[in-house]
């Protein structure tokens, strides 16, 4: 079993796709580095912190993009974002079976402020345009940097999102909120609080990720491959169901002070027990309690 959490983006791709099938697009040898970081006299990376290419996943033809959290926290600049947009549009052009995005990002790369913001919005539009064209886009989050900022919106735009318990997902990171609103609002050093608020288990119980897996590459691979096979269904009806679910969520939990209160209302009275449950046991227990949209008849 190889950990997803500690693997680099390259190792994650290698561990997930079928052996010897990955073909990198704009590989490091092409040196598509960020011109803006150069201007600021900051280190660049030959892949600008995102690795893209085509591969087979349990036989299915996929395009894949993997963000490298180690380089600038996986933050999105002009080049980085354009590579992700390219891979999404290429998938449509080449009629791939799906797109897989291994997300690990702090969001907009502040050193490329405006270019980063625009790039993130282009990635989100490209994800949705791919889905509208019938292309399943599968996201995965399980690295140490989590998925924050605009890329958390991108994650929630995916057809299907796979997370591990260790994965974290949120729009504004705890440090950002603490800086803006004070430690009373969000104590970013309270690890248990951060985990309860942003971690994979809470996201799974709320229905904001579709699969919760153990922290290993094989588990991510199987969950992603299954989601690609399930295909895409993005329609006015599915979005209306989601709308009804999000309305209900707000009515039920809008005043809940803590994740533990939400879990109690969902039928998990012992927050401490939940924290030590392995992912597969939690998934087995969660069943009907999760808040997910009602299915649309096909």
């Amino acid at each position: 079993m190889r950990t997803y959490y500690e693997a680099t983006a390259r190792k994650r791709i290698e561990g997930i796709v079928d052996a010897d099938t990955f073909r990198e697009l704009l590989p490091p040898t092409e040196r598509t580095v960020s011109p803006h970081l150069k201007v600021l006299d900051l280190p660049v990376a030959f892949d600008d912190g995102v690795i893209i290419g085509s591969a087979r996943l349990q036989g299915q033809r996929i395009l894949i993009g993997a963000q490298e959290g180690g380089f600038m926290g996986g933050a999105v600049g002009e080049v980085h974002g354009a590579k992700l947009v390219g891979v999404l549009e290429r998938a449509i052009r080449h009629r791939a079976d799906g797109v897989v995005l291994l997300l690990e990002s702090g969001g907009v790369r502040l050193q490329e402020a405006n270019a980063g913001l625009i790039a993130v919005s282009e990635v989100i539009r490209a994800i949705l345009a791919a889905r509208a064209a019938g292309m399943p886009v599968i996201g995965a989050i399980g690295g140490q940097y989590g998925c924050f900022g605009g890329m958390s919106i991108a994650a929630a735009c995916c057809t299907h999102l796979v997370m591990s318990e260790e994965g974290r997902l949120g729009l504004s990171g705890p440090e950002v909120i603490e800086t803006a609103r004070g430690v009373e609002e969000f104590d970013s050093r309270d690890r248990a609080l951060v985990w309860r608020t942003t971690g994979g288990k809470h996201r799974y119980l709320l229905g904001d990720c579709d699969a919760l897996v153990e922290d290993n590459l094989e588990a991510f691979r199987d969950a992603i491959a299954q989601a690609v096979r399930a295909g895409e269904r993005f329609s006015l009806e599915t979005v209306e169901r989601e709308h009804a679910m999000l309305e209900r969520r707000l009515e039920r939990f809008g005043t809940a002070p803590d994740a533990a209160d939400i879990w109690r209302m969902l039928g998990f009275p012992e927050a401490e027990r939940l924290q030590v449950l392995p992912a597969h046991e939690l998934v087995a227990l969660a069943g009907v309690h999760r808040t997910v949209p009602s299915p649309v008849e096909s």
């Binding site: 680099t8 390259r10 490091p28 660049v44 990376a45 030959f46 892949d47 180690g70 380089f71």
Partner: peptide
């Protein structure tokens, strides 16, 4: 074939 190892993270290199 070319090869790349490492990540441009603090205290690291590619």
């Amino acid at each position: 074939k070319s090869v790349i190892v490492g990540v441009v993270a603090s205290g690291n290199l590619e």
